[in-house]
């Protein structure tokens, strides 16, 4: 039996959604009987191959996030925005009230204890975007799993729905934004 391929990534995320996924604990074993991971922080695969499901945690805060998100969209049949950050920018979007330059100057030039103040400008580093955006501003999103983070029960419910081909739905008692 071919197993469902799942890719996961964290963009402007905190890895909390991934931790919450792992909070499924031993239920993960039953999931892994039917699914396997492609590119993910859990695996060593560097680029997303053809997948059934892509889970994206985190909003979009820099140009590398945009590239990874587009790679996921291109290769995943179903793309799911996981967690508050991917859905509406989340807590990192609080920086949208400030100018990007002001943020960088505060941290790298005027921050307390900063030595040799300079804003990092190596070409290796991805440039920050003017704002933090939800992922649906960049690509088409198929499903949303709200929560900061979504609970393990929500993840379990979602995997079961998707693996068994049911329509994905969340009962009201599992629904939360915080």
């Amino acid at each position: 039996m071919t197993r469902i391929r799942i890719a996961t990534t964290s963009l402007a995320g905190c890895f909390g959604c991934h931790m919450s996924l792992l909070d499924m604990d031993e239920r993960l074993v039953s999931i892994l009987e039917k699914a396997e991971f492609d590119r993910s922080p859990f695996t060593d695969i560097k680029h997303c191959g053809s997948c059934d499901i892509g889970l994206v945690e985190g909003g979009i805060c820099n140009e590398e996030n945009v590239h990874v998100l587009r790679e996921f969209r291109k290769n995943c049949k179903i793309l799911i925005a996981v967690g508050a950050c991917a859905i509406n920018g989340g807590v990192p979007a609080l920086r949208n009230s400030f100018q990007l330059r002001a943020c960088l100057e505060e941290v790298y030039l005027h921050g307390e204890g900063v030595e040799n103040p300079q804003i990092p400008n190596d070409a290796e580093l991805p440039l920050l975007l003017d704002k933090v955006y939800p992922i649906h501003e960049v690509v088409q999103v198929d499903f949303y799993l709200p929560g900061c983070p979504p609970s393990a029960d929500q993840f379990f419910r979602m995997f079961n729905d998707l693996i068994s081909g049911n329509e994905f739905s969340l009962p009201r008692k599992l629904l939360h934004f915080d």
Binding site: N88, G89, N96, Y133, Y144, L175, H176, F177
Partner: peptide, 21 residues
Amino acid sequence: LQAVAYYLGMLDGHFPPFFPR
């Protein structure tokens, strides 16, 4: 507002956020 969103089964904001200041 949040509780009404739960009542209505809202999962996401759907629209591009305004991010007002």
